[in-house]
């Protein structure tokens, strides 16, 4: 095993355990904080795959922003936060298990079937400069469309949050 594989193993174990804690935690705020660990280890996997920009986007957007949004969502709703523990019914647990197992099998079968024998050669790190080149030279319109999408999301959030 080379260093890359050892690092992946460590990240996979940390991320997997954190993911398990997200769904088994009896406190919904703790679950959100375990989600930070799980998402951060995914960022580490991106770094290992030589995609540093994607890794930093993962940290900035998911660890930074999405978790903040989830925490605010928890605090706004009347979710059983705090001392009142989550009492998931057996039916919900079975349903969650079936969905989780189904997604797991689907991904392993489909991805294994599609790319199982493929060998991806080491191509070196994707330079962020190259990404910027293609984004700001060839994909200018999609880039500007992103701003309109963000604007729509922002106005939608304000409309929903306002009482009048």
């Amino acid at each position: 095993m080379n260093g890359q594989e050892v690092a992946f193993l460590i990240l996979a174990v940390i991320g997997g355990l954190a993911g398990l804690l997200v769904v088994t935690s009896r406190n919904v705020v703790h679950a959100a904080l375990y989600l930070v660990v799980a998402l951060a280890s995914v960022a580490g996997v991106y770094l290992l795959l030589a995609a540093p920009f994607v890794a930093f986007v993962q940290v900035i957007i998911y660890v930074g922003a999405i978790v903040v949004l989830i925490l605010f969502g928890i605090m706004l709703t009347r979710a059983p936060v705090g001392r009142r523990v989550l009492d998931n019914t057996l039916r919900a647990r079975v349903g969650a298990f079936v969905v989780g197992a189904g997604v797991f099998i689907m991904f392993t079968v489909f991805l294994g079937g599609a790319f199982g024998d493929e060998r991806i050669e080491n191509q070196g790190a994707t330079a962020t400069e190259a990404l910027g080149e293609s984004l700001f030279r060839n994909y200018v319109l999609p880039f500007e469309a992103v701003s309109v999408l963000l604007l729509a999301a922002l106005i939608g959030a304000i409309v929903l949050a306002r009482r009048d």
Binding site: I60, A65, V68, F72
Partner: peptide, 19 residues
């Protein structure tokens, strides 16, 4: 929530500033 959402929007914007 609106402040959190404003933060998310401008966080996404800042990601594009790096490349």
């Amino acid at each position: 929530y609106v402040f959190a959402f404003l933060f998310v929007i401008f966080d996404v914007e800042s990601v594009f500033l790096f490349p």
